[in-house]
C-alpha cells in the first residue's frame, strides 16, 4: 500500500513535465548569429550603401574562412568537453602544412624539398599530413594522461615545438609548386564540404556512440568515470589524437587553398577555435558542449571579421573587439553555470 503511494507520487509530476522538452541550447546562439548578421546588414546600408548579406562572393569567403577554423574547432570542442584545452592546433596547422606540402610538389617546380619525391599521388601528402597531426595529438594526449601535467602546459609545449618544427623544416622558406591534385581540396567549395563532413561525423560520434558518452562522462567527473570502468587515460589519448588529426587536416586544407605552405600558417588559429567552441556553448569546466554550437560559433566569428572588414573597421580594432567577444562568451558560460547551481 505505502509503496504504491510513493510510486504514484513520483510519477505524477513526470507526466506534466515530459512534454515540456528543453529547448536545444543552440537556439539561443543561432538567434545571436542572426542578430549579428542583421546588424551588419543594417550598418551596411547606412555606412556602405550596400547589402552585407546579399553578396554571394562575400558569403563564399566567409564560409571558406570559417571552414579551416571550424575543422580545428570540432576537435578542440571535444577536448574542452573532457575538461581539457588544446593550444597546439594552430602550430600543428603550420607544421602539417609544411610537411604535407613538401610531399606534394610538382616536378615542374624549380627547387623542390625532395627532388626525388615529386608528382606523388595526392593521397601520399594527405596521408603524411594526417599522420603528423595524429602523432602530435597522441603526444599531447599521452603527456596529459600519463604524466598528469595540466593540458594547458602539455599543449603549450606542443604549440611552441610544432611551430619550431614548421620553421626548421625548410629553414623558413615557403614550400610552393604544389600539384593540382593536392590543391584540388582547397579549390572551389571543397574546404566547406570537408568541414561539414567533419562536423557531421563528430556530431554523430558525440551524440550516438560510446566514445561520445565517455567523453562527456570524463568531463563531468573524471573520478566517477574512472570508477565506472572507463579507461580514462586511453580515452583522453583518443580525444587529443582526434584533435591533432583534425588540426592536421586543417593544415592540409590551408596549404591546398593557398597552393603553398609557410611556417607562419595557422598562427592564433587555436584561439579562434577555442573561441568558436566557447561562443557555441561549450563549457570550459567540461562535460558540456555540442558540435552544432561550435559550428554556429565559428560562423559568428567569421561574420564578425568579414563584417568589420566590410565596414572598413581597422584590423587592430577587429582584434580588440574579438578579444572582448571571447571574454564575453566565457562570462556567459560562467553565468550559466552559476544559474544552474541555484
Amino acid at each position: 500500500m505505502t509503496s504504491e503511494q510513493v510510486t504514484a507520487k513520483a510519477t505524477t509530476p513526470a507526466l506534466g513535465r515530459k512534454h515540456r522538452r528543453r529547448m536545444p541550447p543552440e537556439v539561443n546562439i543561432l538567434l545571436v548569429l542572426i542578430g549579428i548578421a542583421l546588424v551588419f546588414e543594417i550598418l551596411g546600408w547606412i555606412f556602405a550603401g550596400q547589402s552585407f548579406l546579399m553578396n554571394v562572393q562575400r558569403l563564399r569567403i566567409i564560409i571558406l574562412q570559417v571552414s579551416v577554423i571550424g575543422i580545428i574547432a570540432v576537435g578542440v570542442t571535444q577536448v574542452i568537453i573532457t575538461g581539457g584545452i588544446d593550444l597546439s592546433s594552430g602550430s600543428v596547422v603550420g607544421m602539417t602544412a609544411m610537411i604535407a606540402a613538401s610531399f606534394a610538389q610538382a616536378s615542374t617546380w624549380a627547387r623542390p624539398v625532395y627532388p626525388a619525391l615529386t608528382d606523388l599521388p595526392f593521397f601520399i601528402p594527405i596521408g603524411i599530413g594526417l599522420g603528423i597531426g595524429l602523432l602530435a595529438g597522441i603526444i599531447n594526449g599521452w603527456l596529459i594522461a600519463y604524466t598528469k601535467i595540466p593540458p594547458f602546459i602539455a599543449t603549450l609545449g606542443m604549440m611552441v615545438s610544432a611551430r619550431g618544427i614548421a620553421k626548421w623544416y625548410t629553414k623558413g622558406s615557403p614550400v610552393s609548386g604544389l600539384t593540382d591534385q593536392f590543391n584540388f581540396i582547397g579549390t572551389s567549395i571543397w574546404p566547406v564540404v570537408v568541414f561539414l563532413v567533419v562536423a557531421l561525423v563528430f556530431h554523430i560520434a558525440l551524440r550516438y556512440t560510446r566514445y561520445g558518452k565517455f567523453t562527456y562522462a570524463i568531463g563531468a567527473n573524471v573520478q566517477a568515470a574512472r570508477v565506472s570502468g572507463i579507461n580514462v587515460e586511453k580515452h583522453l589519448i583518443k580525444v587529443y589524437a582526434i584533435a591533432g588529426l583534425l588540426a592536421g587536416l586543417a593544415g592540409i586544407v590551408t596549404a591546398a587553398r593557398a597552393q603553398t605552405a609557410q611556417a607562419g600558417m595557422g598562427v592564433n588559429y587555436e584561439l579562434d577555435a577555442i573561441a568558436a567552441a566557447v561562443i557555441g556553448g561549450t563549457s570550459l569546466a567540461g562535460g558540456v558542449g555540442r558540435i552544432t554550437g561550435t559550428v554556429i560559433g565559428a560562423i559568428i566569428l567569421g561574420i564578425m571579421i568579414s563584417g568589420f572588414t566590410f565596414l572598413r573597421v581597422d584590423a587592430y580594432y577587429q582584434e580588440i573587439i574579438k578579444g572582448v567577444i571571447i571574454v564575453a562568451a566565457v562570462i556567459v558560460d560562467v553565468y550559466r553555470q552559476k544559474k544552474r547551481k541555484v
Binding site: Y216, A225, V227, G287
Partner: peptide, 24 residues
C-alpha cells in the same frame, strides 16, 4: 566526488558503466 556525473542527466548517469560491454 567519485559517483555522480552531476551535470549530466539520470539516463547518462545510469548507462555509463553498462556501456563497457553491453548496449553498444
Amino acid at each position: 566526488e567519485t559517483g555522480c556525473l552531476l551535470i549530466l542527466d539520470v539516463l547518462e548517469n545510469m548507462q555509463i558503466a553498462v556501456l563497457q560491454d553491453r548496449f553498444v
